[in-house]
């Protein structure tokens, strides 16, 4: 790092309005949520408008970035910047999930057992702390989600998608565009199938297992963890789709395709998070 090459070939973009458009979008979106959650009629509309503005901003901004990249403005130095930034971004996501996993472990190892301790008989005389638990204030009238049905299939799907994505990457490295497009397409299909199963699982839980977001700490951690993960899979799938279209248009070269790699890193990250979910939310 120390005797790195000079920086004089570092691309610096000219002034841009995308960020401020994004800020307006965020303000409308989150302000809209706040109204929505408090039953202000304008809320959903404001959120929708915010979402549209954000999508508009992203299409413009990413379009510009893609143009710059394909226009050959990004040197190796810029490429290294993207690598650092994507790594740190994924690290921040790891910490975000760590917070929610922390909540799960805390509930399972500490708060639920504690609520049935001797002193707590004073408040909750007959609470049984067995996990899955809905807490002492409610009856646990739900069936927990088993691990070996849909979740196991989903695990297989995601693991397979990691493999297909890697095959696509090899295709790209070998400049075998057919292989790249095919396997990347397959990865997307696997991602979408995963989401379909997840949606099915949720509706099954609500309608047949009586397992709801409000079903005490078990329902809470189950839905929040799997939900945030599902949200990330959705984002990842959209990213894959974008990359796929770029591949179809002939973007990326064997030695210059960080966008592809960045998405792949993200996808693998989502994959690993799922493994933890599978073990700690569904299985154990």
């Amino acid at each position: 790092m120390s005797n790195a090459t000079p920086t004089h070939n570092y691309y610096l973009p000219e002034p841009a309005a995308y960020p401020v458009i994004g800020s307006v979008g965020i303000l409308l979106l989150l302000g809209g949520f706040a109204m929505w959650f408090n039953d202000v009629a304008l809320g959903p509309w404001s959120s929708l408008a915010g979402l549209l503005v954000l999508v508009y901003m992203m299409v413009l901004w990413f379009g510009k970035v893609i143009g710059e990249s394909e226009g050959g403005l990004y040197t190796k130095r810029v490429d290294v910047s993207y690598r650092w930034s994507m790594s740190w971004f994924i690290f921040s996501e790891v910490m975000f999930f760590a917070g929610f996993f922390g909540a799960l472990f805390y509930a399972r190892l500490y708060s639920v057992p504690e609520l049935s301790s001797i002193d707590h008989k004073l408040l909750w005389p007959d609470f049984n702390p067995a996990w899955p638990s809905a807490g002492p204030g409610a009856e646990a009238n739900f069936t927990p989600m088993g691990a070996w049905g849909v979740p196991a299939i989903n695990t297989l799907l995601l693991l397979t998608s990691g493999v297909t994505l890697t095959i696509a990457h090899f295709g790209l490295l070998a400049n075998n565009r057919g292989k790249l497009n095919l396997w990347l397409g397959l990865t997307i299909l696997l991602g979408i199938t995963f989401l379909g199963f997840q949606a099915y699982e949720y509706s099954h839980a609500y309608s047949e297992l009586n397992l709801k977001l409000t079903s005490g700490i078990y329902g809470t951690t189950f839905y929040m963890l799997t939900g945030f993960h599902g949200f990330h899979v959705t984002i990842g799938t959209i990213m894959l789709i974008v990359i796929w279209f770029r591949c179809l248009k002939g973007h990326f070269k064997p030695d210059h395709h960080f966008a592809f790699e960045g998405v792949a890193w993200y996808w693998h990250f989502v994959d690993v998070v799922w493994l933890f979910l599978f073990i700690f939310v569904y299985w154990l």
Partner: peptide, 26 residues
């Protein structure tokens, strides 16, 4: 921190029990 305030938000509006002893949270 984002996670913590998000949990607060869902406890407020969506009936989750992160910080509610009756639901097994704390």
């Amino acid at each position: 921190l984002a996670g913590a305030v998000t949990m607060t938000l869902t406890d407020r509006h969506f009936g989750t029990s992160f910080f509610n002893a009756a639901g097994g949270g704390d």
